[in-house]
Design a protein around this nucleic acid. Sequence first.
DNA 1: AATAGATTTTACATGGATTTAACAAAAGAG
DNA 2: CTCTTTTGTTAAATCCATGTAAAATCTATT
Lengths: 225, 225
Amino acid sequence: MIYCVEDDSNIRELVVYTLESTGMKACGFEDGKAFMEALAFETPSLILLDIMLPGEDGLELLHKLKASAKTKEIPVIMVTAKGGEYDKVIGLDGGADDYVTKPFGMMELVSRVKAVLRRTEKTKDPIVQVGDLKLDIKKHEVTVHHTPVLLTLKEFELLEQFVRNQNIVLTRDRLLEKIWGYDFDGETRTVDVHVRTLRQKLGSAGEMIETVRGVGYRMGEKHES
Amino acid sequence: MIYCVEDDSNIRELVVYTLESTGMKACGFEDGKAFMEALAFETPSLILLDIMLPGEDGLELLHKLKASAKTKEIPVIMVTAKGGEYDKVIGLDGGADDYVTKPFGMMELVSRVKAVLRRTEKTKDPIVQVGDLKLDIKKHEVTVHHTPVLLTLKEFELLEQFVRNQNIVLTRDRLLEKIWGYDFDGETRTVDVHVRTLRQKLGSAGEMIETVRGVGYRMGEKHES
DNA sequence: AATAGATTTTACATGGATTTAACAAAAGAG
DNA sequence: CTCTTTTGTTAAATCCATGTAAAATCTATT
């Protein structure tokens, strides 16, 4: 969901229409007040923020957004009619992710939105890909080479941890804590056993899970030796 | 380190100068060839890429960068004289992180660079560096001159101690206590043996571990004597 | 309660990692 | 220079983390 805060209804509607026509969900707001109210209910994945607004202006809103832990991770693209360099600098240094000057083409806007989303959603994707392994978190579906692989719950959770932490080594303790919930007294080979079945079920993609002796397991794209 | 690929030497030098005056390291390249060569040697944290270049143009370079696993994570800002919307779309959809149109102010450029770095550096993990030895704690990975070095657990822990305590002498007892856990009765040559394999595996970087007779070992960047 | 499937535990083999042991080489002390 | 101490080096001995199979236990579904 993309929020567009813009007082000019023509532009606002055009933007919302354009974004929706490319398959994204979008919602327009006339001023900061309506916008902040909606924000309490829902967390959009990106915000288009006009600088010139009635009431609180865009820079103040930006400041508020970046001050709150709940909203500071939401990427923001500033929009303005004034094209001076000074405005751009203020907007970007204030924590905005990009800056667009009116009049702007809709194609450019869509591209910038996509670029910023690509940059930010990298960390928390619903669908992750590693090599030829695809993982759809929401659907709980895994494919290797477009061939579906059936995983049990624990296997899936384990794989999810690996995929979310590519190339970094996960200790058994860390995995037990994340997947099984905190404590779990010393000796158990549970993780190892699940890693084994994972490797087995994933076939060729299973080789991406490497064991780091004495530490834990790590997953990453293969490299020759 | 920021790379700037730009054929116009005036602009290139101005950009490099400006970035350096804000405390960042920067390096300019006249064409794609020189740039790609440098890239094999070092991984910059951001790339400024002109679209119009002699030889391979910026878009081709961008495509190459995004195709290789080693470089696809490096953020790229496209730069061009042509301001058409079409160019912007192509650049951004090609995987660039931002787009700047000439003529641009240096303040704006710096802001955009900072904004993109702010976005991308969030995901990075702590890497310690000494000379041309790099140590990534989370990945449990060590490289010398960008060449990976395979270390066992104890070797890694030992190296970690050295790197975390650069230039200060670590006694054998101190190391045994830190890595092996407190007590450990008197005589053992364990540390020495591991220091040996470390020096061996690290190759040239191994020379940074010097022995302080009668006391222990110390690691620091080399200096003539 | 019975069944099937998932998950965990147990047990053991294996091979790489670590340590020990033994000796060589180097550095200081007198 | 000789003796002593400390460190370097090598190879063998030991240890112990991991892979693996199979049994035991747990969970949900009928």
